[in-house]
Structure formats: structure tokens, C-alpha cells
Nucleic acid binder design. Structure first.
Length: 672
DNA sequence: TTGCCTCGAGATCA
DNA sequence: CTCGAGGCAA
């Protein structure tokens, strides 16, 4: 049944009223009507929409919780990346930041900074099209995040339709989702009364809420939103200043921080920080510092961005929180490479919003420098996203029986010798794969997502496999069958079948993943990828000498030696053989063939000294790829390879506009 | 490093 | 109901 015109009009009226009140309440923080009246209007609208379902629109306030559970969080691509911020933890770091900014801008005057409190929540991107909320997504890796629209829609300080005026056709709003202290307390109190579990801090509660599959659950969480910037914008001229962007956002109907302020120079920044710090306790939400952004957009452009953070902004963080606790023990953990890492076992202490019971002590030098002993009272520090740290010992509280921490002579796991090479900080167990701890870590690495990607093979299972003597090398994984597996804990028939299937599936891989999975020291994902492209097959890599290895981009003498000694070890070669026999395969690259022709027709001239090869070797490598080498620069020269102290050839090449390669660029070209 | 959520499946109890 | 694995965020 279609709704009559008067019902339609009334519904629109009610919606406008509600949205208007949402706006005044959540964005302007100036409510106009009592809650009871709001509820009455909402109920009337719900009734009306129930009667005439065709009246329901996606931006109706009744639809905040209307969404259905999602099956999986879809990926959302951020056309304008969501960057993170560099941190400053003290006055010096702030001063350095300001100095760098002024240097790059080449100005002596005071730079204007837009300051605002740094909310302790999680970053979010909201997409409005034609003023209607289309999508809400998490930051993810900055480029691709997760679609959490269904949960975002339940947040009342996020307008489903922009109530303001003059908003652009497409608007991506960037801001922070958080939970107010009061909301957090009330929610936990209610949960306690119901006998349910409570959240440990507002930030985790907010983050957890967004990960709910069912938006009804998120709707019960007191989430809020404050905007602090924009991403993609279509159909509006971009303002000259960040502070104007904030003004625009407010005008379009979005909540921005009432504490935002433009300040002048490093002195103004410091004052602003002090002011917010003094106010911190009075603010209704948790903050962990202030953000300072160069206000003028033109200046932002000059400064640009370095890797993942803009050079024009900084998070000036409040000092990390510190607590005193007792160092109960120090254990030495054995990593994949055999490195022994001392880990402090602490009497659990609540600091910076979480309970800390472990902290790494890094190495023996660190222990000696801080002079920590077992039984000592220590200061533990934690700042938001920073790994907890043992800062110092409270010497006055040192008990008589405090024990010095000694580096074990033998591996705590396999009793092999522990050696510490002179001048190196780390000590290592020499047990190799005979050491169960190293074996476990190697297997775990081998199976990990970015390596062979064996789903379902986690820590517990690997421990069981190693301890049951079922696996001694990664190759042994491929010999496992359901019957053997089914004998293990929490491994019944179904789990066993799933695992065998996952192992089978992992056999189809790529050379890069395979090389990475081997766990050669210093060979991470990127290096493994370079090696795979360069050599094209595993045999060539296994037999390459250090000289050749060093012509791979980003492979220097150390990595080359590591690779060489890995493959010199007969045991490792045997494992590779066995893996191949077990059926591990990857698409053939035929890199050798393409390498032979890739530079065909290109004329090279070499000048100066290269670090990695002699002139002849470099020439051989060029010819091996189909290129030609000449001794003098002419118009026909395609590339000049310029090493150290290049002379007249370089000058001539520059004059002729010939492409000049330094050693790094040359290596990249060879490897490409 | 910690905390949170989800999913599949095993373990447990009625 | 509980556990392990996996994934995500700061």
C-alpha cells in the first residue's frame, strides 16, 4: 500500500525535526527539546513507517539500527590515503619539528599551526554523496580499510544526511570515533549489573564496537564522532587553511572539536599544549595529546609527505604513563634465528589503559645499563601505541636477595651452547633446527600468511607437532596425514581434514613466497621478491655466489653472505629438495630468457668505479642481458653508468641529456 | 604488546 | 561453553 500524501508530508516533517535535534544536540551541543519529546516524535515516525513501509528512506533516523548483520567486512579503498602522524614526546621534539618546518618553508617568521586535542579513539573515513552518508570505513593500512558502515550508522553524532548547507557533491570526512568517559562508565556499570564482562578502556570498547557483525550491538554502545579533516572532495573549492576546512565541516553539519585553535609558532604551540593538558581531566573524553598542523594549505603542499606521515603535522603526546611494579622473573625466549631475548615477567600493573605483565629487556647490554635485577621494583612506562618498557630501577627498594640476571650458558630449550659474538648485542643458541624453540618459530614462519599461507596452523598446533616428534623440518609438514593428526589435542577428524587440505593447498605458491618462507636471515618479503625476479628459479638462487647475489637490488655483502651460507648448508639444500619432491610448485618465470634479451639494443657506457663489480664484470652483466657496452659517450649511448669519481664522460653525457645511472639504479635495472 | 571480535570445532553437561 | 586461530587497531 502506498502512503497518502499527507502521511508522506508528516513523515518528512518528523524526520527533519529529529535530524535537526540530532544536529543541535550532538553537533552544536545545544539541545532544544527534552529527551521525552524527542522520543515521542521518534515513536510517531516509527508508527508511521510501520504503517506505510514505502515511506522508509535510508537516511531516516529510524534506520540507524535497521541494518542487517554483515557477512564479512568488505574492503574500502581510500582514494586519498589516511596517513598517520609523527609523534613528539617532549619540548625538544616539538622544537625540532617546528625548525624542520621553517627550514623547508625557508621562513624565519612564526608558522601558524592549527591545534586540536588528539582524541584517543580510532580513525574513520565517512563518505557522503549528495549529502547522504554512503560509507564508513576504518583506516586499515592507510590505503585500504574495512567497510563498517552498518555500525557507523548507529552513531548519533554522525548525520545520515548532512543537515548543513553548501556541502559538496562528494565529501569524505576524516575523524575519530571514540567513547566518552561517562558513556564508557555507564555502559560498564550496566554490563556489571547484568553480570556480563566489562571493557578495560574506552578506546578498546570503541574499536571493538565497530567490529561487531550485528549493528544492534554497536547501537547500544555510546559511540561518538568528531571530524578533523577531509579526504576526497568533489564540487567544492578547497580552502586556503586547515582551520577553514574545520569551519566548513561545521557549516555542513558535522561535529568538530570546540577546542580547536590556531596558534603562532613553537611558543604558541607549547602554550596551547599546556592549556589543553591543564584541561585534560575536565574534558568528557580521553585524549593523549594535541595535534598541530601547519594551517596554510599552500605551506602543507610545500612540505609534502614522507612515507606514511605528512611533514606538516605532528602529534604532541602527553608524557607516557608510568607505574611501579615488581620484576618477578626474567625468562630468555629463543627466536627463529636462535636469538635469546630476555623478557621481564612483571607483577601485573595497570598502566596507560592496559594491564602490563610482560616487557622485553632487549638484550644483555640493556640489562646491564639499567642494572635491573630479579626482585627489583621497576618503573614501567606505556604510551598508547608504544610497546611497554622497563624504564628504570627504584634502587631504594632493592631487596637484599635481589638476583643478578645472567645470560644462560646453554639454551634454556635445547641445552645447546649459547654464543655471543664480540661486539654484538644478541646472544644466540647454536642449536639451529635441532632446537625445538627455533624449529617451532621456523615452522610458524613457514606457514604464515605471507609465506606459504597454511591456514589453521597456529602456535599450539605447531608446539604439539614438534613435541610429538612429528615435524623436524618444514618439509615434514607435507607428510602429515589425517590419522596422525587426529591423535593430537583439540584435533578431531574435521580439524585434521581441514589442516591436511590447507597444507595441500599451500603447495601452489610463488617463488617469492617460497624463498621468504625458508626464513633465511635478513631475507624478508621484499628481498625474497627481488631474488625471485632476479633468478627466476630456485636452482639459480641456490648456486649463486655472493658476487652475483650482490647485483640483486638491496642485497649487500651481509645479506649475500647469509643467503650463501644458508644454501651451503647441506641440510638446508636437502629440505628444499624435499619440499620440491613433496609437490611445492610455482608458476615458472623464465626470468633467464627474458633477462637475456631485456636490454637488447641498449648501449651502455661505464665510467668511474663501482663498489660491487669491476668494469669487466659490470660489462658482462650488461651483455648477459642483451645490452652492448661501448667505451665512449655518443648520441647513440642509452645509459651512462656512473660510479665513484666519474669524470669527463659524465659531463659529456649530461650535456647530451643521456640517462645517468648511479650504482643503485644500475643494479635495479639489471634485476628488473 | 594488549585487547577486542568472529568463526569453526572440540569438549562438556544435561 | 570454551579454545585456538586469525585479523585488526593503536
Amino acid at each position: 500500500m502506498n502512503a497518502p500524501a499527507d502521511a508522506k508530508r508528516r513523515a518528512q516533517e518528523l524526520r527533519d525535526t529529529l535530524s535537526g535535534h540530532d544536529y543541535r544536540y550532538y553537533v552544536l551541543d545545544a539541545p532544544e527539546i527534552p529527551d521525552a519529546e524527542y522520543d515521542r516524535i521518534m515513536r510517531e515516525l516509527v508508527e508511521l513507517e510501520k504503517q506505510y513501509p514505502d515511506l522508509v528512506t535510508p537516511d531516516s533516523p529510524t534506520q540507524r539500527v535497521g541494518g542487517l548483520p554483515v557477512q564479512a567486512f568488505a574492503e574500502v579503498h581510500h582514494s586519498v590515503p589516511m596517513l598517520s602522524l609523527a609523534n613528539a614526546f617532549d619540548d625538544q621534539e616539538l622544537t625540532d619539528f617546528d625548525r624542520r618546518v621553517r627550514e623547508r618553508l625557508d621562513t624565519d617568521g612564526e608558522v601558524e599551526y592549527a591545534g586540536e586535542p588528539k582524541l584517543d579513539g580510532l580513525a574513520i573515513s565517512l563518505r557522503y554523496e549528495g549529502g547522504v552518508l554512503i560509507c564508513g570505513a576504518t583506516r586499515g593500512d592507510g590505503t585500504t580499510g574495512e567497510d563498517v558502515t552498518h555500525n557507523i550508522r548507529t552513531i548519533q553524532s554522525i548525520p545520515l544526511r548532512l543537515p548543513g548547507t553548501g556541502f559538496p557533491k562528494v565529501l569524505e570526512v576524516r575523524g575519530e570515533i571514540f567513547m566518552s568517559r561517562a558513556g564508557f562508565e555507564a555502559m560498564n556499570e550496566a554490563a556489571r549489573k547484568r553480570g556480563e564482562k566489562t571493557f578495560v578502556n574506552p578506546r578498546n570498547a570503541a574499536a571493538g564496537s565497530l567490529r561487531q557483525v550485528d549493528p544492534k550491538l554497536a547501537a547500544r554502545r555510546p559511540l561518538e564522532f568528531i571530524a578533523y579533516g577531509v579526504g576526497e572532495v568533489q564540487g567544492a573549492s578547497s580552502p586556503d587553511r586547515h582551520s577553514e576546512t574545520l569551519g566548513q565541516l561545521k557549516q555542513w553539519g558535522l561535529r568538530v572539536s570546540p577546542e580547536a585553535k590556531v596558534v603562532k609558532g613553537v611558543d604558541g604551540s607549547r602554550e596551547y599544549y599546556e592549556k589543553i593538558a591543564a584541561k585534560r581531566e575536565q574534558l568528557p573524553y580521553e585524549i593523549d595529546g594535541v595535534v598541530l598542523k601547519v594551517d596554510q594549505v599552500a605551506q602543507q603542499r610545500i612540505l609534502g609527505t614522507v612515507s606514511k606521515a605528512p611533514r606538516w603535522a605532528i602529534a604532541f603526546k602527553f608524557p607516557a604513563q608510568e607505574e611501579m611494579t615488581v620484576l618477578e622473573n626474567v625468562e630468555f625466549r629463543v627466536g627463529r634465528t636462535g636469538a635469546l631475548t630476555p623478557v621481564a615477567r612483571l607483577k601485573p600493573v595497570f598502566v596507560g589503559g592496559v594491564t602490563v605483565s610482560n616487557a622485553t629487556l632487549h638484550n644483555m647490554d640493556e640489562i646491564e645499563r639499567k642494572d635491573v635485577r630479579i626482585g627489583d621494583s621497576v618503573i614501567v612506562r606505556r604510551a598508547g601505541d608504544v610497546i611497554p618498557e622497563v624504564v628504570s630501577v627504584v634502587l631504594s627498594k632493592r631487596p637484599k636477595r635481589a638476583r643478578r640476571i645472567k645470560l644462560p650458558k646453554r639454551c634454556p630449550v635445547c641445552s645447546s651452547d649459547v654464543v655471543r659474538i664480540e661486539n654484538e648485542a644478541v646472544a644466540r643458541c647454536v642449536g639451529g633446527l635441532f632446537c625445538p624453540a627455533q624449529l617451532k618459530q621456523s615452522i610458524l614462519h613457514f606457514a604464515s600468511r605471507r609465506a606459504m599461507h597454511i591456514d589453521g596452523l597456529g602456535e599450539k598446533l605447531v608446539s604439539q607437532l614438534v613435541e610429538a616428534d612429528l615435524v623436524h623440518t618444514p618439509a615434514d609438514l607435507f607428510a602429515l596425514d589425517t590419522e596422525t593428526l587426529a591423535g593430537l589435542e583439540r584435533m578431531a577428524e574435521q580439524s585434521a581434514r581441514n589442516l591436511v587440505e590447507a597444507i595441500e593447498k599451500s603447495k601452489q605458491t610463488t617463488l617469492a613466497r617460497f624463498v621468504y618462507a625458508l626464513g633465511i636471515r635478513e631475507v624478508g618479503e621484499a628481498t625474497a621478491g627481488n631474488l625471485a625476479v632476479f633468478f627466476g628459479d630456485i636452482e639459480a638462487l641456490m648456486d649463486a655466489d655472493e658476487e652475483v647475489l650482490q647485483s640483486v637490488p638491496d642485497v649487500g655483502p651481509i645479506v649475500a653472505t647469509n643467503i650463501r651460507s644458508f644454501f651451503t648448508e647441506p641440510h638446508n639444500r636437502a629440505v628444499v629438495e624435499k619440499l620440491l619432491e613433496a609437490g611445492v610448485v610455482w608458476p615458472k618465470q623464465n626470468a633467464a630468457v627474458s633477462a637475456g634479451t631485456r636490454l637488447s639494443g641498449k648501449m651502455f657506457v661505464l665510467t668511474g668505479a663501482l663498489a660491487a663489480y669491476t668494469r669487466d664484470e659490470a660489462a658482462d652483466r650488461i651483455r648477459a642481458r642483451g645490452g652492448r657496452v661501448s667505451s665512449s659517450v655518443s648520441k647513440k649511448t642509452d645509459y651512462l653508468v656512473a660510479g665513484e669519481s666519474a669524470g669527463s664522460k659524465l659531463a659529456k653525457a649530461e650535456k647530451l641529456g643521456i640517462e645517468i645511472l648511479d650504482e643503485t639504479a644500475f643494479k635495479h635495472l639489471l634485476a628488473r
